[in-house]
Design a protein around this nucleic acid. Structure first.
Lengths: 254, 254
DNA sequence: CATGATTTGTGCGATATCTCAACAAAAATT
DNA sequence: AATTTTTGTTGAGATATCGCACAAATCATG
């Protein structure tokens, strides 16, 4: 695999994608100058990107501010639709959630974040709505620990160090070394448990989804409210169902 | 608002986005030649786009086939996160679904498709999992009818004629004129009912979400299994709750 | 309302990228 | 195995785009 040479790149595409990514919940409406500042592009370039996006229907322009249109969602859904994994696991998630009366999800790792790719929501325990495409940091989630455990340690550590670890609750572990120790423990016992490190009142238990050859391709989890019992009870009561689904999915993966 | 002149466009961006959109559930792994054929781009250009996407982390390359990576989802979620509407309506959806024990959703229109932007899933009645970003055709959905009814008729008709109307079930109306008549009726009574036109066993009722000034910005619906009663019962039982939420949201919109 | 500050739009030379064609490697076919 | 077809890669001239600098427009303020 040779490196990417200058002749094989398309600057315009890279710039345009970075422009799309400057739109966030905090800045849903942006002027040319704002996009230019946020993306580091020249104003003239940012303007060309925005006008092109508008022309293609990916953005709207009211003469002053640009906003993204739902057409942009086609890009993401193209990606989700193109993944075989979500379709394969959805029936299992539905059955699992139905049976246990709790929400289950499957996620994969993108740098230092987990990305939900399939979910069967059963009842509302989390304050924010999770859905395919949603992201949470890996360091404080059960699926994140499972997915980090599948990486070589230096690589897992690199990802833990990308951003400072925020204390989302008073129980959140924020020391990378401490999290790394949990990741090691997760690797040893082949499942991860999170006790209110993402949000108070919410626990979660996760196992890796493996191919027949043993490679981790995703993580499967179950979210549980604290009143479902203490951590040991939770593991003894719910882990068997997770490992059973893990085994079934392993048979049909790759 | 001046027209887009040749000097204000960025071809590379347009090409790259069209390359991303060539990836679908049917073609999740594509070679350079396949992408070239699907996008209409020259092989050399398609190759440059794909290599650039790979270099940026939006695609993977195994030497023969390209696949999209979860990073692409950032583009779509950037868009969803940038929309104020989903955050505003989510609590209402949660309450509504909890109260009635059925799934409710909010969607907006993108050409001839509705795009789910928020959803509170309560139980499983549809065969496919719907989530924010999911798309369904407008012509055979209650929210689609509501959203089409808010457009000038010629524009609504244009969208109905973009693709042939598929008979998803034996109850699906596939004649554009007939659908247009339903759209007119929807406009007159200010809500829409769909009886198993998307999927057998599934009915749905929708109302528009309006701003204080009366403009339709989205649609709100409730999905109901057929065993919830006949259509009249369904309307008398569930429409009041929908119009109540519609009124509450109208107060806080724009 | 004048003035300064900020933002947006545009012309231009320098540079990157596109198109098109040719060619070599790989795959499919005979 | 030879031939045909498809595919990936490369080069060169033509074209589009970049980034800068400046003009026009808009906004903020006394």
């Amino acid at each position: 695999m040779t490196g990417i040479s200058q002749r094989d790149t398309m600057g315009g595409l890279a710039k345009g994608l970075s422009v799309i990514e400057t739109f966030t919940a905090e800045r849903p409406r942006q002027s040319i100058a704002e996009v230019s500042a946020a993306s580091g592009l020249d104003r003239a370039t940012a303007r060309r990107c925005l006008l092109t996006l508008t022309h293609l229907g990916y953005a709207d322009y009211d003469g002053k501010f640009f906003t993204l249109t739902p057409r942009v969602l086609r890009l993401g859904t193209a990606c989700l639709a193109a993944m075989p994994l979500p379709h394969m696991v959805q029936p299992w998630l539905d059955r699992l959630s139905e049976e246990l009366g709790e929400s289950s999800s499957v996620s994969i790792l993108d740098e230092d974040e987990i990305v939900y790719v399939a979910r069967a929501a059963q009842r509302k325990v989390m304050s924010i709505a999770l859905m395919p495409g949603s992201r949470l940091p890996a360091y404080c989630t059960s699926m994140g620990r499972v997915l980090l455990a599948a990486l070589p340690e230096p690589e897992a550590m690199r990802r833990l160090l990308l951003k400072p670890l925020a204390a989302r609750t008073e129980l959140t572990r924020t020391d990378p070394e401490e999290v790394m120790a949990e990741v090691r423990a997760t690797r040893a016992r082949a499942y991860a448990v999170i006790d209110q490190e993402v949000e108070l009142g919410l626990r979660s238990i996760a196992v890796p989804l493996l191919t027949a050859r043993g490679g981790t391709v995703a993580a499967l989890n179950l979210g549980l409210p604290v009143h479902a019992g203490d951590v040991e009870t939770m593991v003894s009561r719910y882990l068997p169902a997770l490992t059973r689904v893990q085994g079934e999915i392993r048979k049909i993966l790759r």
